[in-house]
Design a protein around this nucleic acid. Structure first.
Lengths: 182, 182
DNA sequence: AAGCGCTGCGCAATCCGTTGTATAAGCACT
DNA sequence: AGTGCTTATACAACGGATTGCGCAGCGCTT
């Protein structure tokens, strides 16, 4: 279990609300570890009970009040402890890839349009990451080294996926053409 | 939930035992969807109850008997139905990446050695996939198109990861050098 | 004026997944 | 002779994750 540790890592840089964390999980960190807001609020509650984090109540106008969480010393120690032991293997559940593997039974056209839709998302993400990488570079890499490396991973991942998607598109389009002219 | 569909996809090509499937999940498909044998046997049981798959009992000598599962017509229909609806977003749980993001608090040396260990695994997997891609190519791509595309994804993914790892290695080694000579 | 989306927090039920344990036989190694 | 790996299947317990639901107010569009 390391949703808790992902949260601790995020809180290491700055205090944040559950809502803030949910947004980060939907964007940057989501590439590496995903979680929904229900999960996050629940885990923040547990972390608070265990004195890994503390929060201060921040009233807002025009918006609901929020709780800004920050790491406690105990939380930081727990994080350091976790960082020392070897990480478990990465787990993935990529339903689209399963569909590609089962492609013989699928409709090529709908596969292609789904591919294009995903490619669009990836391109957007790539642009976001590239902009972020540039910003971190301008700000000076020393202070942002590990964020920078994480973003680089995102960039290389998007590019590799898009390159693959291009291969698939070409292959499947050739297939449609040749099957349309028997 | 689509462990069931991943299993149906695998059974589409050939009948297989739970053990066979577990091996495939540990290798090729594992890159895209992972599952342990407990999960697989359980799911095969459910799929059988729902008449999505059927099995024949195969006695063996020197080894335990096995059950060879195959798709039923109903299973194939269910698979086709699933292939038509859009796939959910990919979910990942990559603990090592979380560690990199929290790298400021980590020991650089142990991060580097863990990186090298993972890189070794990736290199091995890359070699396996490349050999497999070549074999499929030799056998003729028409018959193996979707397997080939899946393997290509694996290859591009490994390469992107290894490229990133190289960046990280260089960056972190520079860091060690500069901090060792203040 | 109604509907939608954003900001914010949270509970409950159920389902999925992991971990631990069990059995059983052959083979290889020390 | 004992240890451990491979083949092969399966149950039980627990904890993690998903899905569904609920509240609440502001601002924007239709």
């Amino acid at each position: 279990m390391s949703l808790r540790h992902a949260i601790l890592v995020l809180l290491q840089d700055q205090e944040a609300s559950g809502y803030d964390l949910a947004r980060e999980f939907a964007n940057s960190i989501g590439l590496v570890w995903n979680a929904t807001h229900q999960q996050i609020y629940l885990e923040l509650g547990k972390l608070n009970e265990q004195n890994m984090v503390s929060y201060r109540h921040v009233p807002q106008e025009g918006k609901p009040d929020k709780k800004l969480y920050q790491l406690t010393d105990e939380g930081r120690e727990e994080l350091i402890r976790w960082l020392k032991k070897p990480a478990g293997p990465a787990r993935i559940r990529d339903a689209f890839m399963v569909k590609v593997a089962g492609g013989q039974l699928a409709d090529t056209q709908s596969l292609l349009s789904e591919l294009e839709q995903l490619a669009k998302q990836r391109r957007e993400r790539l642009a976001t990451f590239e902009a972020l990488a540039k910003r971190l570079d301008d700000e000076g890499l020393e202070d942002n080294l590990f964020n920078y490396l994480t973003v680089r991973r995102g960039i290389l991942d998007q590019r590799a996926w898009l390159q693959w998607a291009e291969e698939v598109r070409r292959t499947l389009e050739d297939l449609s053409v040749s099957s349309a002219t028997p």
